[in-house]
């Protein structure tokens, strides 16, 4: 089976800083891949480079046989990528409804049906539908951000640290949500919360100093304390 998403030795810069120095990974249809690593390793930059917000300076990014490497972000996203950024990327001056509408670039009946389905999943959003997004709580903003990635018929969803800054009870809710739509979508998840990563992920890649240094199944990672200590700086109980 061919990978749905493939990064081949990808490099990128932010200003003068060489952040990604050779990231290689493959994501197969239907799986959830977790990108792990210490702070500043290049995890977020990997996601931002995939969708073109940070331009790749070398290497190849291929999604479903389409070369994304030199595409502008708006074009990349239209190849079928949903993006849930670390800071949620919610527009405060827009209502919940408008935050969903602005993401619906496909503008067909299927997209409208998907939005209605998503609102059934996220009842909080349905109740706040006409409210300004600035009035939402952190958990609701995260849900809205995830909902926005689901309204289009995306092939893959990139999610950056969905548990960051949220209360434990909300993190559980976010985890349950990811587990629900994991059954239908291919996911790339950047996550510092190891429990969340293990609950959602099937496979992992570890990035250190801008390079992929290790990969395997989540089960292998959970069973290998030495590997956890060496690359992630902790050991699960």
């Amino acid at each position: 089976m061919d990978p749905l998403l493939k990064l081949d030795n990808v490099s990128s810069f932010i200003g003068p800083f060489h952040i990604l120095q050779g990231v290689t990974l493959e994501v197969y249809p239907g799986e959830a891949v977790v990108i792990l690593g210490r702070n500043g390793a290049g995890k977020t930059t990997t996601l931002r480079t995939i969708i073109g917000l940070v331009p790749a300076s070398a290497g190849k990014i291929i999604l479903d046989s389409v070369d994304l490497t030199a595409m502008p972000p708006y074009h990349t996203v239209r190849q079928g990528i949903g993006f849930v950024p670390e800071d949620y990327g919610i527009f405060d001056a827009l209502t919940v409804e408008e935050n969903l509408l602005i993401a619906m670039w496909q503008e067909d009946q299927d997209t409208v049906d998907r939005r209605d389905h998503v609102l059934e999943l996220f009842t909080d959003l349905k109740e706040s539908y006409k409210r300004l997004a600035s009035t939402l709580s952190g958990g609701q903003r995260q849900m809205l951000s995830i909902a926005r990635a689901l309204v289009n018929d995306n092939k893959i969803i990139l999610i950056d640290e969905p548990s960051k800054g949220l209360a434990p009870i909300i993190v559980e809710k976010v985890r349950d949500t990811l587990l629900t739509f994991k059954q239908e979508k291919t996911i790339v998840l950047v996550e510092q919360n190891f429990e969340m990563a293990c609950a959602v992920g099937d496979r992992y890649y570890i990035i250190a100093e801008g390079q992929t240094v290790l990969d395997g199944t989540i089960k292998e990672l959970m069973d290998d304390e030495e590997l956890q200590r060496k690359h992630l700086g902790f050991v699960t109980a």
Partner: peptide, 14 residues
């Protein structure tokens, strides 16, 4: 209105 807050995120929505 969205672009005033974050033109980058607008692009990330296609």
């Amino acid at each position: 209105r969205a672009g005033i807050q974050s033109p980058e995120m607008v692009q990330a929505l296609g």
